[in-house]
Computed example of a mutant assay.
Amino acid sequence: MKTLLFSLFVLITTTIAEARPVYGVSGSHGTVVRGPRGAVAVGEDRAAVATRRGVAVSGPNGTAVARRPYAAPLPRGYVRVVPTGYRTVVYRGYSCFFVGGVYYRTVIYQGETVYVIVD
């Protein structure tokens, strides 16, 4: 695991260093290196790498990687999340969510579940 963390550290800091100057901060708990493409934090028994494309974290309990989805902007009138406090109602023959005087209908857009604002 330490080899993997060191490899991630070297890979990301090399990429950052080649792009622009690197800004590093050292402390009693480890080292943080920040640059225009991301950041790396390395401690005694843990490490984290964050870039525009995602995050990788490794520590005593294991390793986790999360990639940032490249979601395209939605067309006007579509939203990814319905505001909290909604009620489920039937409106114009569709099962909709109602909150704040607005009706939201569930639809599939480009393989993703989103909500369209019903006029």
Rank of each mutant, 00 (worst) to 15 (best):
Y94E: 08
Y78A: 00
P73R: 11
A71K: 08
G93H: 03
R76W: 04
Y86E: 13
V81F: 13
R76N: 10
R76C: 06
A71L: 14
Y70F: 15
L74W: 08
A72W: 13
R76M: 07
V79C: 12
V82E: 07
Y94H: 14
G77Q: 12
Y78V: 01
V89G: 09
V79S: 06
F98L: 04
P73E: 12
S95G: 12
Y78N: 00
F97C: 08
V90W: 04
R76A: 04
R92G: 14
T84H: 06
V90Y: 15
Y91K: 14
F98Y: 01
T84A: 02
R92Y: 11
Y94N: 13
F98K: 00
V89C: 05
Y70A: 09
L74R: 06
P75C: 07
R80I: 02
F97G: 03
F98V: 01
G77N: 13
V79H: 04
T88H: 10
A72R: 14
Y91Q: 08
L74K: 10
A71E: 05
C96K: 05
A72M: 14
T88G: 05
F98I: 00
G93M: 05
V82C: 03
V89E: 10
G85A: 00
C96P: 03
F97A: 14
V79F: 02
S95P: 12
S95D: 14
G85F: 01
S95T: 15
R76S: 13
T88K: 09
V81H: 12
Y70S: 08
G93R: 06
F97R: 06
P83H: 11
T84M: 01
R87E: 03
R80A: 09
G93A: 04
P69R: 13
L74I: 03
V89L: 12
P69T: 11
L74S: 06
